[in-house]
Each structure stands twice: as structure tokens, then as C-alpha cells.
Simulated scan of single mutants.
Amino acid sequence: MSDDKGFTAKEALGFATFAAVGLVLGIAAYQAGGRLSGAGSGAVVASAGAATTPDGQALYVGNCAGCHGGQGQGAVGPAMKPSAAWSDAEFKEAVLHGHAPGGRELKNVMPRFGTIGLDGAPATDAQLQALHKYLGTLP
């Protein structure tokens, strides 16, 4: 039996390496989700002067699926089903600023879409509502 109460330098280095690799893979998965969905590529066709309703599924695939999974089941980030029950104001605060209900701060890997926008453009209330509504359709 050993009286050792700490980690060895080798164990600490192994843990730090594991954490760094996990972070890099998470960021790469998030970025790949946008590229694989075709977000930001191709032409957008709409009639002149017609108001278009944002597509919640397309917004999810382009901005969220890389971390939260294609069906919101969770991956690098948590499952999305619980957030469908949040109010629109709670959902908006979480997506834009990383503040979940109850004052909980979301992890740093969660993008602050209030700063970076959705697909490179500032997020609109209509986009956030469409995204939130889409989450309610996930299994």
C-alpha cells in the first residue's frame, strides 16, 4: 500500500494531453458540422421583397449539429432536448451569451453566437425562434 496522494508528472502530462486532444477534436467537429451541411455555400433563392421564414433545421445543421449531434442526441456538447422546454428568452440568452437557465454558465467550447453570429451574420430573433422550435421536433 502506498501513501502517495498526488499524481506523478507523467500522469498529469497524460491528462493534459488527453484534454488538449479532446478540445481540438471538439472544435474540429464543430467546424466540420458547418462545412458538411453546406452552410454558407451556394446561392440563396428568394423572390424579391418576400419575407422568408428562417429554416430551424438548416440553422441547427449549420451551427449546432457538429457538437450536439445530428439529432440533438449529444456528442461534444450535451443533448438538446431539454433546451426545447426553455422559454424563448432563456434559449436566446443561452445561444447568444452562454447563460443557461438558473444562472448556469455554459462551457467555453459553446460558441457565443451573439459575438460570432449564425453562419457569419448577426443572429435575428426569427432565426432563434425557428431554431428553438426545431429543437422541439427532435426525438
Rank of each mutant, 00 (worst) to 15 (best):
S37F: 07
S41V: 09
V44N: 11
E105T: 12
V44M: 12
V45G: 06
S37V: 04
D55T: 06
I27W: 11
G102I: 06
L59N: 00
G120W: 02
F18Y: 08
M80W: 04
E90P: 11
A9I: 01
L106T: 14
A43G: 11
H68Q: 02
L59M: 00
G74P: 04
A75Q: 08
M110F: 14
K81I: 05
D4T: 09
G38R: 10
A29M: 12
K5Y: 02
F15S: 02
D3G: 11
E93N: 15
L25A: 13
V61Q: 14
G33K: 01
G102H: 10
Q73R: 02
S37G: 15
A121L: 11
G6W: 01
F7I: 10
A130K: 04
D3T: 12
L23S: 13
A50V: 15
D88E: 15
A84Y: 07
G103L: 08
V21I: 15
L59R: 00
A29S: 14
V109T: 05
A84Q: 06
P82G: 06
H132P: 03
G77H: 05
H99W: 07
K10P: 00
G136K: 04
A123S: 14
A51S: 12
A121C: 01
G74F: 01
Q71N: 04
D4G: 00
Q31S: 03
M110S: 14
Y30E: 12
A46W: 03
K92L: 09
A75P: 00
G136P: 07
K81L: 10
L59V: 04
T124Q: 06
D88C: 05
H97S: 15
Q57F: 02
A12T: 03
Y134D: 02
H97E: 15
S87E: 08
G66D: 03
G103K: 08
S2D: 12
A130N: 01
M110A: 13
A75F: 12
D55N: 15
D4M: 02
P82C: 08
F18I: 01
M110L: 14
H99I: 15
M110G: 10
P54T: 10
A58V: 03
G38Y: 10
A123F: 07
Y60L: 03
Y30V: 05
D3H: 09
L131Q: 06
M1L: 06
A130I: 00
D3R: 09
G66Y: 06
G72Y: 01
D4C: 02
A51G: 03
A32L: 09
A94S: 14
G26L: 08
G117Q: 04
D3Y: 07
